[in-house]
Simulated assay, not measured.
Amino acid sequence: MRRTQAALQRTLIDLVQDRELSRISVADVAERAGVSRSTFYDHYRDVHELAEAACTTMIDDLIEAIPNPGAGDVPHTPADTLLTFFAHLADHAGLYRSVLGSQGSARVIGHVRRRATVAAYLGARRAATGDETPSPADYTARTPHDVPAAFTAGALIGVATDWLEHGCPRSPAEMAALTKPLLMALYREDVHPRP
């Protein structure tokens, strides 16, 4: 069972490097993975559900690279954090362009947004309280509405998606250098008091 799921996920990741997710069918994935369509449907409802499953590990890696906002935290975020974030995107540009772009998967986009928001929220909570909190993977159901965290997640995903859709015209280092001052300006203590 897990072997088949892994094969389907790897196949989708390979296919999405060459064409948009919206142009990949269940038949394409099943044939390339060497399984029947009924076997595909034993594991996933459709290609979008498979995309969400296939991207989970990569999304978790992506979220780990997102800076953690909080009182005084972002201004001290090392430049290499953003560099890691954009380098990860560049290394998997075909996949992320397909799943995050205008023809991508709403499920995957929603998943990325939720995970990024949770990571930002937890980073701010750690910075403000010093408390150790669960990892983003363990905390998604209990995250309260947090405007700065949601804004950070949306802003980074928006910038990343735009960059990917334009073919990554700037290097990851240039993107990190352009993005860091924006985050620093957003997370000065005097800009947005937390309730």
Score class of each variant (00 low, 15 high):
residue 128 A to P: 01
residue 174 E to W: 07
residue 117 T to A: 11
residue 162 D to H: 13
residue 191 V to R: 02
residue 116 A to D: 03
residue 117 T to H: 01
residue 30 A to S: 05
residue 67 P to R: 09
residue 109 I to L: 13
residue 2 R to I: 03
residue 18 D to E: 12
residue 45 R to C: 13
residue 159 V to F: 15
residue 187 Y to T: 10
residue 19 R to G: 04
residue 130 G to E: 09
residue 53 A to L: 13
residue 17 Q to T: 10
residue 173 A to N: 11
residue 86 F to H: 01
residue 184 M to L: 13
residue 68 N to T: 15
residue 183 L to F: 11
residue 35 V to P: 04
residue 49 E to H: 15
residue 48 H to W: 09
residue 175 M to S: 02
residue 100 L to W: 04
residue 16 V to S: 01
residue 172 P to Q: 09
residue 43 H to L: 05
residue 147 V to T: 13
residue 174 E to K: 10
residue 120 A to S: 10
residue 23 R to L: 02
residue 38 S to A: 08
residue 169 P to R: 11
residue 99 V to N: 01
residue 122 L to Y: 08
residue 182 L to F: 05
residue 18 D to V: 07
residue 41 Y to P: 13
residue 103 Q to F: 13
residue 181 P to F: 07
residue 94 G to Q: 07
residue 155 A to Q: 14
residue 166 H to R: 15
residue 124 A to K: 02
residue 117 T to D: 03
residue 159 V to K: 14
residue 1 M to T: 04
residue 168 C to Q: 07
residue 45 R to N: 14
residue 7 A to W: 03
residue 42 D to L: 15
residue 66 I to C: 04
residue 181 P to M: 13
residue 99 V to I: 15
residue 62 L to M: 10
residue 136 P to T: 06
residue 97 R to N: 05
residue 61 D to W: 03
residue 17 Q to M: 07
residue 94 G to V: 12
residue 43 H to E: 00
residue 130 G to V: 06
residue 14 D to Y: 06
residue 19 R to F: 07
residue 79 A to D: 07
residue 17 Q to Y: 05
residue 99 V to F: 05
residue 12 L to V: 13
residue 99 V to C: 06
residue 29 V to H: 00
residue 65 A to G: 08
residue 72 G to C: 11
residue 82 L to I: 08
residue 156 L to H: 05
residue 164 L to W: 02
residue 159 V to D: 10
residue 65 A to E: 04
residue 105 S to A: 12
residue 147 V to N: 14
residue 88 H to V: 07
residue 191 V to N: 02
residue 160 A to Q: 03
residue 81 T to W: 04
residue 117 T to P: 02
residue 186 L to N: 05
residue 140 T to R: 12
residue 172 P to V: 03
residue 134 P to D: 13
residue 118 V to H: 02
residue 123 G to P: 00
residue 124 A to D: 07
residue 121 Y to Q: 02
residue 25 S to L: 10
residue 140 T to F: 11
residue 194 R to F: 07
residue 8 L to G: 06
residue 167 G to H: 10
residue 17 Q to P: 03
residue 112 V to C: 08
residue 72 G to K: 10
residue 58 M to Y: 11
residue 37 R to I: 01
residue 149 A to S: 07
residue 41 Y to W: 14
residue 120 A to F: 02
residue 111 H to C: 12
residue 175 M to Q: 00
residue 143 T to K: 12
residue 105 S to D: 06
residue 139 Y to Q: 15
residue 110 G to L: 13
residue 127 A to D: 05
residue 25 S to W: 05
residue 135 S to T: 15
residue 189 E to T: 12
residue 149 A to C: 09
residue 83 L to W: 04
residue 17 Q to R: 14
residue 186 L to G: 07
residue 66 I to T: 11
residue 194 R to V: 08
residue 154 G to Q: 11
residue 176 A to W: 00
residue 102 S to A: 15
residue 47 V to S: 03
residue 62 L to N: 09
residue 21 L to W: 01
residue 22 S to T: 12
residue 23 R to V: 08
residue 127 A to V: 02
residue 35 V to N: 09
residue 24 I to V: 08
residue 166 H to E: 11
residue 147 V to M: 15
residue 187 Y to D: 06
residue 154 G to Y: 06
residue 156 L to N: 03
residue 177 A to R: 12
residue 44 Y to I: 04
residue 146 D to H: 15
